[in-house]
Simulated assay, not measured.
Amino acid sequence: MDVTDALAIVTGAASGLGNATARLLAEAGARLALVDLSAESMTDLARETGALTLACDVADGPASEAAFARILAERGRPRLLVNCAGIAPGARIVEKDGPGSLAEFERIVRVNLVGTYNWLRLAAAAMVENAPDAEGERGVIVNTASVAAYEGQIGQAAYAASKGGVASLTLPAARELARHGIRVAAIAPGLFGTPMVEAMTQDVQDRVFDIIPFPKRAGRPHEFAQMVASIIANPMVNGAVFRLDAGLRMQAR
Rank of each mutant, 00 (worst) to 15 (best):
218 A>F: 04
147 V>P: 07
117 Y>Q: 13
13 A>H: 06
253 R>V: 15
54 L>S: 06
243 R>K: 14
106 E>G: 03
25 L>P: 05
122 L>I: 07
210 D>E: 12
29 G>T: 14
57 D>F: 13
160 A>C: 02
137 E>C: 11
58 V>M: 10
107 R>P: 01
140 V>Y: 09
92 R>M: 07
85 A>F: 10
175 R>S: 04
215 P>I: 11
68 F>C: 03
194 T>Q: 13
190 G>F: 00
149 A>V: 05
132 P>V: 12
146 S>A: 12
110 R>M: 01
29 G>Y: 13
24 L>V: 07
95 E>N: 14
209 F>A: 10
57 D>S: 15
94 V>T: 12
231 I>L: 11
116 T>N: 12
133 D>E: 03
2 D>L: 07
36 D>G: 03
179 R>I: 00
55 A>C: 05
173 A>H: 08
99 P>A: 08
157 A>F: 07
193 G>K: 01
135 E>M: 11
28 A>G: 01
12 G>V: 00
10 V>I: 15
240 A>F: 07
17 L>C: 06
133 D>P: 09
225 A>M: 12
104 E>N: 14
162 S>R: 02
182 I>D: 05
52 L>G: 02
57 D>A: 14
51 A>G: 04
200 M>N: 00
54 L>F: 12
234 N>K: 05
72 L>C: 11
93 I>S: 10
12 G>W: 09
250 M>E: 10
163 K>A: 11
26 A>G: 15
234 N>L: 14
15 S>K: 06
39 A>L: 04
130 N>Y: 01
253 R>Y: 01
33 A>K: 06
74 E>Q: 15
213 P>T: 04
29 G>F: 14
4 T>Q: 08
134 A>T: 13
100 G>P: 04
82 V>D: 03
185 A>R: 11
117 Y>R: 13
207 R>I: 11
64 S>W: 15
231 I>N: 02
100 G>D: 09
40 E>A: 15
121 R>V: 03
41 S>P: 07
43 T>H: 04
34 L>I: 09
241 V>M: 03
88 A>E: 06
108 I>Q: 04
124 A>Y: 13
229 A>W: 12
8 A>M: 10
8 A>D: 02
150 Y>A: 05
72 L>W: 00
231 I>S: 08
49 T>F: 00
33 A>H: 11
